[in-house]
Design a binder for these strands. Structure first.
Length: 604
RNA sequence: GCGCCCGUAGCUCAGCUGGAUAGAGCAUCAGGCUUCGAACCUGAGGGUCGGGCGUUCGAAUCGCUCCGGGCGCACCA
């Protein structure tokens, strides 16, 4: 497929010397596989674009394809047989479809980064799953990826927590294992020490509004913590431990993992040298009220970056700076992506500006990948105010709804719970990717857990139907659509399949459309890497699933016109589609059940 | 007030390094299961791409401006 494209491009370069040849993907299979818009060439040559297209169509020849002038476009359209052969070779060949060979580029992806002592909300899902997808895709495309979880385990919030614990918990419930008499538990499953910590945090902020002096209490506790106070340290360690245990449970459920979990506290002993570097560079100065700041007006940023507060303690900017310097030394990265919400754009602009002043090496290597916040219909979510939607509640609700559908449509299905888990997760995670833009999302249960239409379960359903057909065709066919071994972090490995000489039965327009959409997958994967958004991949998977449905309803597979050759080519197309869907979902962290059925190849 | 982001079908959103007739899903309406999974498919209606001006052979896409919404703006992260 790539060879034909390169061939086409080379021919055009020969025919139009000096012109830059940019090939596009036509809108549909009937128009062709590659398109060359003639507008620019027309302008340069002072001719009508449609006329140029016709002249080129008459003069160019590519084996196995027609070259057609369609208005101002010159389209290369492969013969159906050739298209089928090239595509099946690409999907079923030895190289994972759409992947790229390993190369030396090192990409750091910082994502998830929850705050200790707070619970995972639906808001954390975005950073976690977008980051996971970016990490997977970059690895698939041959980059050396480091997945970093920059845990929020340091800062004034711990002062808040320590102060709150001392005030209300130490006497009443020092181990946080039972209810506070002043609180209302929300649900049985939240009755954990971490949830009690969360309650302390919320209460502190509520009372702080009427008693501003409590803020100083919190700040002084953080100062004690940063100063090495033994009691503060002991409690901090324990809070952290309690939190990590619950985070891990959620990561396991989401199938997300990290190469490093160095939180903010990890950089504590690296802050001084970072401050020193800034001082030596002469960019640190004293601002209003005695804080140490870096002025950034010359970089077009009016708000200076605070590096040390007036009381001498560090701030998140200090720790982010130290982290970047540490990563420079440790990984020598080419790119570092920060998958963090759009409410922090200014912070990252400041951070990148300070780093660029400190060392030009950083220029162009740092990218903030912002995403829109998730709002509730009644307004912004705020952990402090306690009006949040917890991620686990969303996942549980999704699974419950899927289970209800199963009971209705397929009550005999074995392993219902496991299948429901995969589909519920798929619905929530896929929804997030479909809308991966900077716009804020208003959370409503029905939207996030939709199961019909352009959703994860739609794609998963297409996959399950394919496997159902293959099961009826025989065990060897099922095996072709199954991974051959445990996948590594980004690649589901499949066996290489020989393509038979005859590929009858794929000339039907529905089959050709499916081939065309499959051919769009590599571009979609590259687009994820380029745009740092999962949207293109999610939408291409829907397009493939939709095209499969068309193929499935229009082309009989198992009893295809009494022709074994037709049957085999169509089965092969099914295998290719199943692999593409499964691989694509896998990159997004979504599992594809075979019968909406339990399977456990990824666990061992 | 200043800065950044966003206004596309009734609803939720794609499409944005300018290019083919602006596309999906949901909802509504009309059809399709004695045959490979109907968690599906086929069709219909539905649009001043927020308004205006500009650049261009060509603008949803680029620039300016106005309107509407979100976020941020020095010791939280």
């Amino acid at each position: 497929m790539e060879r034909v494209k390169a061939n086409f491009k080379a021919s055009l370069e020969l025919a139009l010397p000096g012109q830059e040849i940019l090939l596009e993907r036509p809108k549909g299979a009937d128009m062709g596989d590659f398109a060359f818009p003639c507008f620019r060439a027309a302008k340069a040559l002072g001719k009508n674009p449609a006329q140029i297209a016709q002249e080129l169509a008459a003069s160019l020849q590519i084996e196995g394809a027609e070259i057609l002038a369609t208005g101002p476009y010159l389209n290369l359209k492969l013969h159906p047989q050739v298209r089928a052969r090239l595509l099946l070779e690409a999907v079923l060949g030895p190289v994972p479809f759409g992947s790229a060979p390993a190369h030396a580029e090192t990409v750091l992806v910082e994502y998830s980064s929850p705050n200790i002592a707070k619970l995972f909300t639906i808001g954390h899902l975005r950073s976690t799953m977008i980051g996971h997808t970016l990490a997977q895709v970059n690895r698939y495309l041959g980059c050396q990826v480091q997945r970093l979880n920059h845990l929020g385990d340091w800062g004034t919030q711990f002062g808040t927590l320590l102060a709150a614990y001392k005030r209300w918990a130490e006497q009443q419930n020092p181990r946080l294992d039972q209810d506070f008499e002043w609180s209302e538990e929300t649900a049985e499953k939240h009755r954990t020490p971490l949830f009690r910590l969360f309650q302390l945090y919320v209460r502190f902020h509520q009372e702080e509004e009427s008693q501003p002096e409590m803020r100083d209490e919190a700040r002084s506790w953080f100062k004690r913590l940063e100063g090495g106070d033994a009691e503060a340290r002991r409690l901090w360690t324990w809070f952290r431990q309690v939190s990590l245990a619950e985070f891990q449970r959620i990561y396991d459920r989401l199938g997300v993992a990290f190469d490093a979990m160095d939180g903010e506290a990890f950089y504590e002993d690296k802050l001084n040298s970072a401050i020193e570097q800034m001082r030596n560079a002469g960019i640190l100065e004293e601002g209003e009220g005695g804080a140490q700041i870096v002025r950034l007006e010359d970089m077009g940023i009016q708000t200076p970056s605070i590096m040390l507060k007036a009381d001498g303690t560090s701030i998140y900017a200090t720790r982010d700076l130290a982290a970047a310097l540490y990563r420079q030394k440790t990984y020598g990265f080419d790119r570092c992506l920060y998958v963090v919400g759009s409410d922090q754009v200014l912070h990252f602009q400041q951070l990148f500006a300070v780093l660029a002043k400190l060392d030009p090496w950083f220029k162009g290597r740092l990218t903030h990948t912002p995403f829109g916040m998730i709002k509730l219909p009644e307004g912004k979510m705020s952990t402090r105010k306690g009006n949040v939607v917890f991620l686990e509640d969303v996942l549980d609700e999704a699974v419950t709804r899927v289970l209800a559908v199963i009971e209705e449509k397929n009550p005999e299905l074995p392993h219902k719970e496991a299948v429901a888990e995969m589909l519920g997760m798929g619905a929530v995670v896929f929804f997030d990717a479909m809308n991966d833009r900077v716009k804020p999302i208003t959370f409503t249960w029905d939207r996030v857990i939709a199961l019909d239409g352009d959703t994860g379960p739609y794609v998963q359903y297409a996959h399950a139907r394919i496997l159902s057909v293959l099961r009826k065709a025989g065990a060897t066919w099922v095996d072709k659509a199954r991974p051959t071994a445990t996948p590594d972090a980004a690649i589901v490995p499949y066996s290489c399949e020989a393509i038979p000489p005859s590929l009858l039965g794929l000339e039907d327009p529905a089959a050709q459309t499916l081939l065309f959409e499959l051919a769009g997958l590599p571009d979609a994967i590259r687009s994820v890497q380029r745009e740092n958004m999962a949207t293109a991949l999610a939408r291409q998977l829907v397009a493939i699933a939709k095209a499969f449905s068309g193929f499935y309803t229009n082309c009989p597979i198992l009893w295809a016109e009494n022709s074994p050759e037709v049957r085999d080519s169509r089965l092969l197309l099914c295998v290719a589609t199943a692999r593409a869907l499964r691989q694509g979902l896998f990159l997004m962290g979504i599992k594809a059940p075979e019968e909406m059925w339990w399977e456990n190849w990824w666990q061992t």
